[in-house]
């Protein structure tokens, strides 16, 4: 069945914005289409007058580290490209680990990181890692170029800051892990039903130079609320603590007191999710600490969840 009438492939952001303006709300931005086109088919959106494909715009497809230890990942970079990036594997491992378990290869080959964020699921895999990496999103919103912290991108389940009939996500920028820093991502899937995680967890840690204590930690556990978020109280518990299993268990205890995961139909009970908070925090924190200490990170679980 016909889902859109026209298909445009602009080669610049200006062209893309001009096209969106021209269609006056009757066209949407599309990247890989692995969410949008499936949703169109399921009748979640009306038939679109046009789809504006942003994956041929150079600024959206570049992936490059700069001199300041920061990296820029264009919104149109596919999950597969992220998985294949050596610099991300070594220095933003959680992003590779999360993008490496999205869908199957065919979906990862076209689905983009920008699409994952625009889709604004409470537990989008790539999103969960971007939150732990404390990324910033570069967007064109209402015709204005803006840089916003990643968490400001989400307004509600499936609702992002941007309006895809008007705005474009250009890319993401975040600091790569340096000495004594490392990340990890793991998730728990249900073998039945919809392929959304029961729980996903991305962890970023920085140890002190002696590698004995946590200096800073960023924890993103999802889904906990309607939008992605950080477990700030749990992060606080880790700061300054010895980088030991005991400290991790203490943080887990805090997490279990503070976080109140809900039961969601055909996905998981709240009690099970609570158990998984403990399991995933333990597994990702231990892994991140080990990676920070050794300076070695080899992504785990790619392609097999």
């Amino acid at each position: 069945m016909k889902l859109w009438n026209h298909y445009h492939t602009p080669h610049s952001i200006d062209q893309a914005i001009a096209l969106l303006n021209q269609y006056q709300g009757k066209a949407k931005v599309v990247a890989g289409g692995t969410d949008l086109i499936v949703e169109l088919r399921e009748g979640h959106h009306p038939i679109q007058e046009a789809l504006i494909d942003v994956t041929q715009i150079p600024e959206l497809t570049s992936l490059a580290a700069d001199d300041n230890n920061e990296i820029y990942v264009g919104a149109g970079v596919t999950h597969s490209q992220i998985v294949k990036s050596a610099v991300l594997a070594a220095r933003a491992t959680c992003l590779v680990e999360s993008c490496g378990v999205v869908g199957g290869p065919q979906v990862r080959n076209v689905g983009t990181l920008g699409g994952n964020v625009a889709h604004a699921l409470p537990a989008g895999d790539g999103t969960t890692s971007l939150v732990a990496l404390d990324a910033k999103a570069e967007i064109i919103m209402n015709g204005q170029r803006r840089v916003v912290p990643i968490l400001e991108m989400f307004r509600g389940p499936g609702q992002s800051l941007i309006d895809s009939t008007r705005d474009v996500i250009i890319g993401f920028r975040f600091a790569l892990c340096g000495d004594n820093e490392a990340t990890a991502f793991k998730r728990i899937m249900r073998p039945q039903g919809v392929a959304l995680p029961i729980l996903g967890c991305a962890t970023w840690v920085r140890l002190n130079p002696a590698q004995t204590h946590f200096e800073v930690a960023r924890l993103s556990i999802a889904p906990i609320g309607p939008t992605p978020g950080r477990a700030a109280e749990v992060e606080a518990v880790l700061i300054g603590q010895p980088a030991t299993d005991a400290a991790i268990e203490h943080a887990i205890e805090t997490a279990l007191q503070i976080l109140k995961p809900r039961t969601s139909k055909y996905r998981a009970t709240g009690d099970y999710r609570k158990e998984m908070i403990a399991v995933l925090l333990r597994r990702t924190l231990q892994l991140a600490v080990q990676r920070a200490r050794t300076g070695q990170a080899v992504p785990e679980g790619i392609g097999m969840e």
Partner: peptide, 25 residues
């Protein structure tokens, strides 16, 4: 639905689900 993968073809050597891949892409 991009679920079963049996429609897979290669575009510039890369496997994609042709059932949701816009032809003009």
């Amino acid at each position: 639905e991009a679920e079963c993968g049996i429609c897979t073809v290669l575009v510039n050597g890369t496997p994609v689900n042709s059932c949701i891949f816009p032809a003009f892409k």
